[in-house]
């Protein structure tokens, strides 16, 4: 808990310092901040499309930056190794049971909280973009249903497709939170077990895994932000042009 506050305060301080005196020609910290935000903006425009990115960019960019720095902050040597613990009979303290600082994303509550917030926002955005009727229509009907008996058959098929779709949508927060939690938690365990594997090597053995963890932290943050934006794009993006008027022309193009 403390770690998330530290990372959040760090990011706020970084943003304040970067935007203290904004000049047209950016330099130093402001240049870096602008590069980061603009890079993310183009990145998400590619996925979400012009108008949707304006509405949802604030969430995805913060998500990416926050997860990235929480992951990397968890790798700082002091985290998880300084704290209270119960020494064993011979007075050696092997396991810290209550570390002062703990890796932010190495805790399922944290990742599940983020995933549920995303799920809430996802529902709000798709309802805004599609409207309640459109929302259900988008999930259950997959296209032009043809005439007569065929329509009935297709209706039944698309009903089952819709049920599967609902299940897969409901499973997304679970998979998002487990993936992030699992990767970061497993990474921490690797570092610990590598330390004890060959004691006389000491810190030399976990060193390559530290760099692996840096990469995994970046990739998991990227994947988390990307998947959330792709899920939103699936629901909201291609419906913005056809604002609710019925598709009179025959073929129903899905811009996936």
């Amino acid at each position: 808990m403390i770690i998330t506050w530290i990372v959040a305060l760090g990011l706020i301080a970084f943003a304040q310092m970067a935007t203290r005196n904004i000049q047209m020609v950016p330099s130093g910290l402001q240049n870096f901040a602008e590069w980061l935000v603009e890079g993310m903006y183009d990145f998400f425009t590619e996925i979400l499309g012009k108008e949707l990115v304006k509405k949802t960019f604030w969430f995805f960019c913060t998500l990416f930056i926050f997860i990235l720095f929480t992951n990397w902050f968890g790798l700082v040597p002091g985290v998880g190794t300084v704290g209270w613990g119960t020494p064993d009979a011979s007075g050696h303290l092997h396991h810290i049971s209550q570390p002062v600082l703990r890796g932010g994303n190495a805790d399922l509550n944290m990742t599940l909280a983020m995933s549920l917030t995303f799920f809430l926002l996802w529902t709000v955005w798709s309802l805004q973009a599609l409207g309640a009727g459109g929302f259900l229509k988008h999930i259950f009907s997959g296209g032009d249903n043809g005439k007569g008996f065929m329509a009935l058959l297709m209706m039944a098929i698309f009903f089952f497709v819709g049920v599967i779709e609902v299940i897969s949508i409901a499973f997304r927060p679970v998979s998002l939170s487990f993936r992030l939690y699992g990767n970061i938690f497993a990474g921490e365990n690797i570092l610990e077990s590598m330390m004890e594997l060959i004691p006389w090597l000491g810190w030399l053995l976990p060193l390559p895994f530290y760099f692996l963890e840096l990469l995994v932290g970046l990739v998991q943050a990227l994947v988390y932000a990307l998947l959330t934006s792709v899920f939103t794009a699936l629901m909201c993006a291609h419906h913005d042009e056809g604002h609710g008027e019925s598709h009179s022309h025959g073929e129903h193009k899905h811009a996936h």
Binding site: L108, S175, L222
Partner: peptide, 21 residues
């Protein structure tokens, strides 16, 4: 590269379901 990273992460997610769920 982007697509490969995403699908690799999706494939990796399966292990954690097996471990935790």
């Amino acid at each position: 590269r982007n697509q490969a990273i995403i699908f690799a992460a999706l494939a990796e997610g399966v292990v954690f379901f097996a471990i935790f769920l």
